[in-house]
Design a protein around this nucleic acid. Structure first.
Lengths: 118, 118
DNA sequence: TGAAATGTTAGCGATATAGCGAATCAAAAC
DNA sequence: GTTTTGATTCGCTATATCGCTAACATTTCA
């Protein structure tokens, strides 16, 4: 059973918003500027900037300056910690023997659906 | 990539508090009364009751009345949904322990540049 | 019946979060 | 050098959350 840390709590807090969840999903396809990330949302630039800084504070996003553009990248370490915390509960919905197989089947089929980038 | 639902957002929101996280961990050992769950925390009964109702609203805890006692039980379905959502990002930190998975994924997709950053 | 035990609900204040527009800053473009 | 672009910071308001005490219901026990 993994420890409950402030970082972990902050990670779940950062994840508890659809804008921020979708932003992370977008970043999984690769780095993007703030404007590109904000585009799908009906939000002011200031509003989205706040969401982004919450993701940054949680360590989920890093920024690199390229001229006046801010390039954002996904940082998965906090996601891994959250995943590990939740993994403990896997015993309640999956038998130990089937865990690996379940995951492999799901992840490989999902990966097949995924369009490979050029 | 799993969908972002209000339920999932509410699950992450419910998880973003150390009292609630610890309460879920305690419930993993089996059902307990409200008083037993509240005991470890320096909180008023009313305060803890609110935390519990948040867990209930997120579907993470169910209650059954036994006289004046409220027996709480863990409900893992929302945890599973959260776990599944995070599983997508596993591709970004797969390491030694996941080499088998990596091999299977790559061999089934013919290994086309999995992620093309930059 | 009356009192204690188990929890919840109501209401309060303090603090945090979400959203906006306006102002600001730095880099690019003209 | 001025304007445009990309993005943040600064107020401001509205709403949500956290924690408390007090009051309330219900069940159990004397």
């Amino acid at each position: 059973m993994q420890q409950i840390t402030p970082e972990l709590v902050r990670t779940f807090s950062a994840l508890s918003d659809p804008v921020r969840m979708a932003t992370l999903a977008r970043l999984a396809d690769g780095p993007a500027t703030v404007g590109e990330l904000a585009e799908p949302f009906a939000l002011s630039a200031a509003g989205f900037s706040k969401h982004l800084s919450i993701l940054q504070s949680a360590g989920l996003v890093s920024k690199e300056l390229d001229g006046r553009k801010h390039i954002c990248s996904l940082q998965v370490a906090p996601l891994q910690a959250a995943f590990d915390w939740l993994s403990f509960y896997r015993q309640f919905w999956s038998s130990n023997l089937d865990q690996l197989e379940d995951f492999l089947v799901k992840s490989t089929t999902k990966d097949k659906e995924k369009k490979s980038d050029i």
